[in-house]
Nucleic acid binder design. Structure first.
Lengths: 230, 230
DNA sequence: CCAAAAGTGTTTTCGTTACACCCATGC
DNA sequence: GCATGGGTGTAACGAAAACACTTTTGG
């Protein structure tokens, strides 16, 4: 290592002492289906947490940028690319991981459930309703709660919830999504008004098809409103 | 290491490959003096960034919790304890640090300048006006900007700016602080009204002394409004 | 008495909420 | 024609912004 004096303990302790940490990322991947906010989870197969839900995560590779890891995991484990990602928090207690000193950086991802190209199974990777989860393996329940909180703050002011919907969607779907995120019902007229004022939507001049009622107009997210990437 | 199957690359790569990262923290320590928002910085002594400003930071010790490191640095390097800290973002590009794979977690700290018990000097540790800084060493300018942004969002809704003031303060000082943070002037009557509605203040029934004008009332932060710690 | 800042209310504007009726489509 | 959701406007309310004069103290 090059000599480097910004840090106070150089000289006292060697490389061996400091360069011994592993870095992981844990992903809170939100989706929207059946009128519910979902999170992509796996059933934990560690003895200590047998049967509990766990987030998708992996170690960051030695030659991989931190922000690249969540994209790789989404690609490898869920077959997803071009997704919304946002870093939320880094957890670094010495004893937080059974395998050694592993610090983990958590990310929120917002995806359209239908884009998943990996086969789901009840025991491995699957979507679980967020509001039904009361406990998880490791510290993942706390991570989920803080990410849900962050999601709520984010979608109030930033046009990111679109990532949870198909490219074309009706205002009813949009409202159902917001109601799922906030676990509350909203007034339809006020919701539409507030949403149009934000000017995030492009009117496609198309109508829903195959709905058993009067079809609603379809909209798309106005591109360029917000960067998609971390 | 215990066998651990949540991560995908176990078996392919050994401990040596993964447990080789160092973790540092960088602190954006805000203060308020002379009507200006300041940040505690050091002059960089690395050849590449000679003369540029750098944030206070250090490696996290092998047996130290991530959240404990910023407290230690504040204690050791600035003689400060019992301070407000908030984690902001983790930077982890492979090549972000000249000394090897070092990822860094950034924290905001809010302190009362007068509480510093360490001797300051122009070339080493010193307060620098935030709004006068146009560049810094490493990626520290970007870090400062994102922390300033976070500070602005935070003080709108949360009673944390008090940490930048003495225990007793006048509303004029409070307003001057907010004006320094947002780099904008506010209407005095509206500022007071909004502030009283928030109900963060305790009226001490005391007046300023030694001011060359009509003394204002002194207030203190109502304890219990918000947790102080990370 | 002058300078400097403290203290104080009202009006206007704007965004938010609450609320009800007719319309288009599928069955 | 009935069920389902689509689409629309207005009144009341509350928060935020604009705005000026009198008071208190020190010098």
């Amino acid at each position: 290592m090059k000599p480097y004096s910004r840090f106070s303990h150089y000289g006292e302790l060697s490389d061996k002492d400091y360069f011994r940490i592993a870095l992981s990322v844990d992903l809170v991947i939100f989706g929207f289906a059946d009128g519910e906010l979902k999170v992509l989870v796996i059933n934990c197969n560690i003895a200590e947490y047998k049967g509990k839900l766990s987030l998708l995560g992996d170690l960051v590779k030695p030659d991989e940028d931190l922000d690249a890891a969540p994209y790789r995991i989404l690609r490898e484990r869920a077959g997803l690319s071009d997704v919304y990602l946002e870093q939320v928090h880094t957890f670094g207690k010495v004893d937080r991981h059974p395998a050694g000193r592993v610090i983990t950086t958590t990310y929120i991802s917002l995806v359209n459930c239908k884009d998943l190209t990996i086969q789901l199974s009840e025991n491995d990777l699957h979507w679980h309703p967020v509001h039904a989860i009361k406990e998880m393996a490791f510290d993942h329940f706390a991570i989920l709660q803080s990410c849900l909180q962050r999601l709520r703050e984010k979608v109030e002011d930033h046009p990111v919830a679109f990532n949870l919907l198909p490219k074309k969607f009706s205002l009813r779907e949009m409202q159902a999504l917001y109601e799922a995120i906030f676990d509350t019902a909203f007034d339809r007229r006020n919701f539409r008004k507030k949403f149009f004022i934000k000017d995030w939507l492009e009117d496609l001049n198309e109508l829903e098809v195959d709905v058993p009622h009067r079809p609603g107009k379809l909209y798309a997210f106005k591109k360029g409103e917000e960067a998609l990437r971390v």
